[in-house]
Design a protein around this nucleic acid. Structure first.
Lengths: 174, 174
DNA sequence: TATTGTTATACTCTATAACTATA
DNA sequence: TATAGTTATAGAGTATAACAATA
């Protein structure tokens, strides 16, 4: 449990992180912006999947995911095959061109990071990865769980998917 | 010096961090979005300053800064006084209402973080702050310094101001 | 009736460029 | 001619809502 001043400093770092994000964005190919790159990365890492799963991994609304996916499909980097098990769904997977694009992205970002973080030790990079992963987990958990009042275990990990404020726009049944 | 796989994982964490950022953004008052909040925070922390200095602290172009500042000034949270030393400039400073707003922001973000990070130790929060600060410094340094080529020069490092790609739009003398 | 995905619309943040008023 | 700041415009990312097709 940290103090207020520490939290304020953390918020400041969050805000300042935008500069890093933008710098990374600048090296991307003009027809493959950050959102598209994230989709390619996830498909490369997790293999084929459906829209809904992708939206969840991206932590954005499915409508957003849909736009990114359309962008990629138009460029031939991914393909949307019909899902035999559910005709409403489509299975997304990388094409060979998409894998090539992914390689290109990986090379560019790796080169940039190798340059910028040239004086970082392996361990320090690892620590940053771990802390950022934990940070996200701390926020994700609370997204599924109700904001339990302070004092005790934040979330019984049994709930399968309570709410998920993103990933799905409520259909507003008329 | 880390390996490629580690860099790729880091990039993934950068991308995923957006979800945290958006979650933080959701608790802000509707008339004080993240950009405005960042300005208030910096003015609170560093005291009065000029536009150009603020833009540098924000790491964004001055045109962007100008819009945020206008937004805040319209709400009476900051004031733009003429700079006696340079009539082109204006000195920005928080008003009492601005300080109140800043307190409100601070309380909201602190509350959210205290909830989400309830199981983080003080030290872990401190480590994350430190690593993120260092990350930004690593990117900032390279913005001012010529990108030391690992093998071959991607760009001639003699240019006089490859520095500060943001903070200033070149005036394009006509 | 509920779910999967798409599209239309709106808002925030950002950068580039052009413009002003000083220096 | 160069600098401080403003404004107009455009692009990326996101969310909400409404809709179509299928469960």
């Amino acid at each position: 449990m940290a103090e207020q001043a520490q939290y304020e400093e953390l918020v400041r770092q969050f805000s300042a992180f935008g500069a890093v994000k933008r710098e990374m964005g600048r090296i991307l190919p003009s027809d493959c912006p950050a959102g598209s790159a994230a989709v390619l990365t996830l498909l490369g890492r997790h293999g084929e999947m459906r829209m809904s799963r992708l939206a969840e991994l991206l932590s954005v609304d499915m409508s957003v995911t849909s736009r990114h996916v359309t962008h990629l499909a138009e460029r031939g980097w991914i393909q949307r095959s019909p899902d035999p098990a559910d005709k409403r769904s489509r299975i997304l997977h990388l094409t060979p061109a998409g894998e090539a694009q992914l390689d290109e992205l990986s090379e560019r970002t790796t080169r940039l990071l190798a340059e910028r973080l040239s004086d970082w030790s392996d361990d320090d990079v690892g620590r940053l990865i771990q802390l950022m992963a934990r940070l996200r987990a701390s926020f994700d958990d609370c997204r599924a769980a109700p904001p339990r009042p302070p004092v005790r275990p934040p979330a019984p990990p049994e709930a399968e998917q309570r709410t998920a404020p993103t990933t799905r726009t409520p259909a507003s049944a008329t």
